[in-house]
Design a protein around this nucleic acid. Sequence first.
DNA 1: CCTTCTCATATTGTCGACAATCTACAGATT
DNA 2: AATCTGTAGATTGTCGACAATATGAGAAGG
Lengths: 233, 233
Amino acid sequence: MDKVTQIKSATLSDDLTQRLTAEIVEGVLPLGSKISEPELAKRYGVSRGPLREALVKLETLGLITRTANVGARVIELNIEDLLDTYTLREAMEGMAARLAAELISEQEVAELYQLLEDHQAHLDANQDEHYASQYGNEDFHLRIIHASQNNKLIRVLTQDLYATIRMYRRYTADSRPDPRQALREHKAILDAIANREGDLAELLMRRHISRAANLLRKAMLQNSISQGNTGQP
Amino acid sequence: MDKVTQIKSATLSDDLTQRLTAEIVEGVLPLGSKISEPELAKRYGVSRGPLREALVKLETLGLITRTANVGARVIELNIEDLLDTYTLREAMEGMAARLAAELISEQEVAELYQLLEDHQAHLDANQDEHYASQYGNEDFHLRIIHASQNNKLIRVLTQDLYATIRMYRRYTADSRPDPRQALREHKAILDAIANREGDLAELLMRRHISRAANLLRKAMLQNSISQGNTGQP
DNA sequence: CCTTCTCATATTGTCGACAATCTACAGATT
DNA sequence: AATCTGTAGATTGTCGACAATATGAGAAGG
């Protein structure tokens, strides 16, 4: 629990969007559970107006589904959706890597190499491989995405798809990819970018993501994901 | 003016979303104009509640920008955004073409060939090249997208990006790509898909979209897009 | 015992009003 | 004259209540 409940935003609707997103990703609101507007409004001490605006946003983020006059439910995870999401990532982050190879500055390249070295050192020192893998991984990918300098791409990846990706990672947390292997792949991608080889960078990024998708797929098949947690009746 | 104002949906908010999207794309609400909630609510005969929910959706669609306590404005078009959007299309529709090559049925292939033949016949018969180009083009792309069978991809392309793409096309309507050239490219893409050559299909689709982006870019440079139209004071 | 219809209940959709915040204009000050 | 400040007006954010719709339990009938 790092970022605690104290989120002060300009508008209640924005606050609610962030909070609800977090609660869904973390499983506080179990997968597939019904969302009662009066109940949630009471829980957060707000009226239904801003709450409904937040729900509209969550729907476009793909975190809940809403049906007119029936209500909203938290989405459920399934393998097709997982694979679809990662295929989309493959296309978009592949393009991001290609653009990064064209546009990234030498300084950013240096910083990325530093990041990978830090990650390597962290791996050598700690046994807490999952934590290191998790954050190093995210950081690397986010930097490549931003290096593309394509605002549309950045927005879809870091806002629209991000929550979904985190959910799938969370619910398949048991079997994570080998962080050392991931690090090697990151290194290869960065080399391609540093050499301004856009084609290669795209290819490697695609394979990297495709491989991650396969691992998650296997994890889901074993887990047979269904159970949320920490929900109140 | 084909689909007239009569849209009956389950909820006022959904109606408003559709109407406002259409009005923005068609220029009834001029680019960059401020959106007054009381005024719009009065115009449509609804209260501000559903209207605000629609505005939240329009914001996520990238058609308006909202600032807390300040209000909403229709977006403005600029070249960077256009290029970013089309680069994203390139990545995503390229992937769609690749997936289509793997997954499309023989019957769908036949239908697509028929579509292209109809398009050809229409071009030979009519001088109204732009109309034919417009609709034939859209239809072809939408079918490829759906043939990918990737729901996430379909959703982002046909819902999140669609309105934006239509706007750029409308505001650069003067100089459209040569429809016969576009048709040739479509034919080549479809051949690749029919032959199950995913790599080639992706490559050709990317080039096709990249070329369209270049033409739109030139059109925007000439037009120096700024003026909306048909708006009331 | 199962099916179907009815009605009560709860939930969602919508509205009008109030509170908080920003914008613009006028006046004062340097 | 230019800049700053303060107030008035308007706009956005939020709230509680009412209307419309779906859900579920129970009765009636087969």
